[in-house]
Design a protein around this nucleic acid. Structure first.
Lengths: 228, 228
DNA sequence: AATTGTTCTGACGGGTCGTCAGATAGTAGG
DNA sequence: CCTACTATCTGACGACCCGTCAGAACAATT
């Protein structure tokens, strides 16, 4: 399942004119992707020009257009590659944990860390995904949904179990709660640099995230547990 | 204090060449702003062309540039006008509430509603602010911070009091918690349309937001309150 | 080395941007 | 009503970026 990205890379690849590229073509495409990724570290998404990517890759703009219809498509290709890894990384601490008693808080900390670290590791690309999705680009919107969907589904399941076990009120809507928590996690993770810059240490942020999760119906594994 | 925006409008206004515009000039500027706002309802932020705004206003692009250095600046002028109203609307339910006992949950509902409604009322412009801020534009970033700052400060105060009253653990960091909650509120509010479209009713969303707030240290006004 | 298929690129038409000199509209004084 | 002056508007322009295409350069195969 996690090789889906790989398969897409080697199977479906077509140059713009419909031909299947050979060894050299694939290498060029790869080089263009790498240069796009590199440039993204120093250039803002909107200032990313095809001509710059091409120059960085030591080739001409026309070559770029042979492999991608536009600059965004190259970014999308990079983003797609991230979805597999990301979905996995985010959902792991949720699934690995056993949501009983005190373990729940540890799980919440692990989840907060996973979000913060994943966004920190891929801040530039994640910013592009968030941005393009917000801007209404359906391709990036799907990408973002797919990335978060695995987590949201898993969180919904945990919440449903908590509710069935009587740890949360019957009116709690598991899916809505999961969406709200995912919003919190992804938004804080995406803005961690800015938040830190305005004086809140990342450590405190992580604790606050974990606490909010733990105190929500997600973390409650005891009918009379108190807020921490 | 709330007339600050008005003052700015009538005092500081300068045409691009440094002159102070007269009656007619101010009217033209106003018309351009209104057309920008109108076009924003039907056009995506990035597709907003100066030439379109000018045509809509029945004037020429060159006229536009006499009043704004670029299209973003017109949007910023609209955004600034929203900050006064927005800050006020968001913080009111937080300050109006007395955070004692059961009232706290009602306050949380009111806060959730305020965020959802404010973003719904100004979805297009708020999307632009979020977008431009995310994109790194410092002017919009400041604008967004100013909009949310009043609320964040007020929430930090409430949290500090709750902690001093012994309703939250000593390790709870009021500011970090406030930031996390504001992230949740603003992100959910900004994406409410998309979330609703994917099948979660706004009502459920509101309840989930209120519950997450209420269960966080913000809502706890009783040492042994249980999760709802 | 000739042939065939693949990959690359210089040069171009089309479009948007922001500027500026000059046209136009408004106004005060005679 | 005319003149002179100021405020406002605009047509036309150069600069820039985008994506395309015909043909050059390259690689592989015989």
């Amino acid at each position: 399942m996690s090789s889906a990205a790989e398969d897409t890379e080697s199977q479906d690849l077509r140059a713009v004119d419909g031909r299947v590229p050979g060894r050299r073509g694939i290498a060029t495409r790869q080089r263009l992707l790498q240069c796009t990724s590199d440039l993204l570290e120093t250039t803002s998404y909107r200032d990313l020009k095809v001509v710059d990517i091409a120059r960085e890759a030591g080739t001409s703009p026309a070559t770029f257009y042979q492999y991608f219809p536009d600059a965004e498509s190259a970014l999308l290709a990079l983003a797609d590659r991230l979805v597999g890894e990301g979905g996995e990384r985010l959902v792991r601490p949720l699934k690995a944990a056993n949501w009983h008693g005190q373990n729940a808080y540890l799980a919440c900390e692990a989840v907060a860390d996973a979000f913060l670290e994943f966004w920190a590791d891929h801040s530039a690309l994640m910013a592009v995904i968030d941005l393009a999705a917000l801007e209404g680009d359906q391709r990036f919107r799907d990408c973002r949904i797919q990335l978060l969907n695995m987590f949201t589904v898993a969180a919904t399941e945990v919440l449903t179990r908590q509710r069935e076990a009587g740890f949360a009120a019957a009116e709690v809507d598991p899916e809505a709660t999961a969406v709200v928590l995912v919003s919190m996690l992804s938004h804080v993770a995406a803005h961690q640099a800015g938040i830190a810059q305005s004086g809140v240490p990342i450590g405190q942020l992580r604790d606050a995230m974990a606490r909010v999760m733990y105190n929500s119906p997600l973390g409650k594994t005891d009918r009379f547990a108190t807020t921490i």
